[in-house]
Design a binder for these strands. Sequence first.
DNA 1: ACAGCGTATCGAATCGATTCGATCTCTGGA
DNA 2: TCCAGAGATCGAATCGATTCGATACGCTGT
Lengths: 344, 344
Amino acid sequence: MAGVSTSTASVVFSGKVSVSEDTRQRVLDAAAELDYAGPDPRAASLRRGRSGIVAVVLGGDLRHAFLDPVTTVMMDRLTDALAEVSAGLLLLRDDPTGDGAPPIADAPVDAVVLIGCSGRARSALEIVRARGLPAVVIEGDAGEGVPQITLDNREASATVARHVFRLGHRHVGLVTLALDGARERGPITPERLERATTDVTLDRLAGMREVYPGAPAVTAAASLIDEGVLAGRALLSDPARRPTAVLAQSDLLAVGVIRAAEELGLRVPEDVSVAGFDGIAVDGLGDHQLTTVVQPAGEKGRLAGEQVARMLAGEPGETVHLTCRFREGSTTAPPRAEDRPAPR
Amino acid sequence: MAGVSTSTASVVFSGKVSVSEDTRQRVLDAAAELDYAGPDPRAASLRRGRSGIVAVVLGGDLRHAFLDPVTTVMMDRLTDALAEVSAGLLLLRDDPTGDGAPPIADAPVDAVVLIGCSGRARSALEIVRARGLPAVVIEGDAGEGVPQITLDNREASATVARHVFRLGHRHVGLVTLALDGARERGPITPERLERATTDVTLDRLAGMREVYPGAPAVTAAASLIDEGVLAGRALLSDPARRPTAVLAQSDLLAVGVIRAAEELGLRVPEDVSVAGFDGIAVDGLGDHQLTTVVQPAGEKGRLAGEQVARMLAGEPGETVHLTCRFREGSTTAPPRAEDRPAPR
DNA sequence: ACAGCGTATCGAATCGATTCGATCTCTGGA
DNA sequence: TCCAGAGATCGAATCGATTCGATACGCTGT
């Protein structure tokens, strides 16, 4: 209608080659006339080989991911870092009940960021590798050749545990994150541990057990204050076998444990010490400042985004190791005199 | 390599037509040999005219959206409702500073859900309509023909205000959500209001001012407890012009106002009454049960998802109006005797 | 008047799959 | 022996844009 070839029309919309103002206007007019709203992104992405979309595969369901402040911050920074390269993030649920092909198999994406690592996330990784998509794994077990962003979960957990040990605690309870996609709460048994698939949980647990090998542990269904309350009750309600300190694998769980303790008439840290993990700003903690390790949540996202951008530019991605920083708060203290280990 | 036509090969992967087991195996073997990982989603989506992706355009930046529990719940239900029809949700930031075309213009999506409505979201809507994409707007000003999910923001706000009025308060302060994409905090002036673009904020404000036409108002940069603290200080710190009640446009803001009040040595509800909006479960509220209106956040998401699914199936989408439910809590009470209006 | 050069436009191949109607083959029944 | 019908496979058109090398055109300098 504008009397030009499709190549010229294409160029008018992409602006990659100069076009005379006259032609340009004719093409635009014709487009308006024909109700043509610019190139079809589907066709463009086929031809270009790029869709401008980066997928984020979350280890758990989206609900829990959204509710977790650590993930929230991470996603935010990830978005920033990918702004140049991607129109937006495609959130994929990594549904463990999924029967057919995981959604990642059919999604037109340029790259993938895998977060956490249930068994299913591993299968998502297979697909990604088969497709030859650039991928970055945040805190998960990647195959060889896949850049990772890792955290010193084990070492950081051990640091907290050592701090509590040094204060004199010999009898502690542990509260862990979910062990796998099923997210069943309850006491951790060796058999249960055998079936666990979530590396973050296992690493943090391993760090804690470096210091307290036989400590009783309870797993929570999610990183939520409410879950922490449940776990706290489970550990603290029986006075006979009540630990003098509780180590939680997230700050939200720790806050829940503190609530449970207060509910039972126990004071923190006088009667029970509680430590967390993450170093997020928790609302509603009252006067307490949680003893915890601060993890660089935003950095995780930013670095993952940077690696993806690099890989899309053809450069190789790099694995980056991040470390946590211990922060002593007011929720840990030496145990009560009668609970102290006998001095030698 | 398998000695079959591309049509047959295609069918082996899509499974839409029956293929003999023999051929099937040969195709699969050849695929493995050639490192072919199944059809390219980009090409498939061109041919099919469907990409299996639904975009979610958020009025504000992603950071605030993620941090807002109402949005979180809504997104979660939206994901559920779209599970059948979409592999995942493409999160698009609706960047007000964007210079080029908004990302929605180039994203290969099948439908769009617009949430909230800054001026930019409206421009996103233009693009969506030009493209002829099915769209649903949640709490925003849609053009004709676009199904909306609406909330009775104005009426619900008026309900809260009337409750406070009936308790005897004549001098109240208002705390609003952000007025526009710029998210500047500060006192609301008529000129400021003139430039405001966020409908939700304006509707709720209008409802409050039905009852308290001249009430001083302060706008917050986001729906966060910290922002509520700032706004609360602004309204409450000067004893001379201190209101006896504060109406906040979100529960998080209300919690912040309560904090600010306590900080100033004021008791809630004895010295100051505070009411919120949303009806979410707020952690860290202590003994208070917030007076608020409960909005059906999950329903908003679910209904939006359902409408999108219907439209993709060829049926017309429908506009749905949702209403909030007033919930009286323990943060509102009659004003102190000396602050009461003189009895006639 | 012509070589030389820069700019605007065009042709045609290509990206990779999907799908429908047509063809082919094999089986069973008359 | 022949035909109908079911099931498997194939051909070929099509989805809609991008892009690179080639061509045409107009201008400048000598």
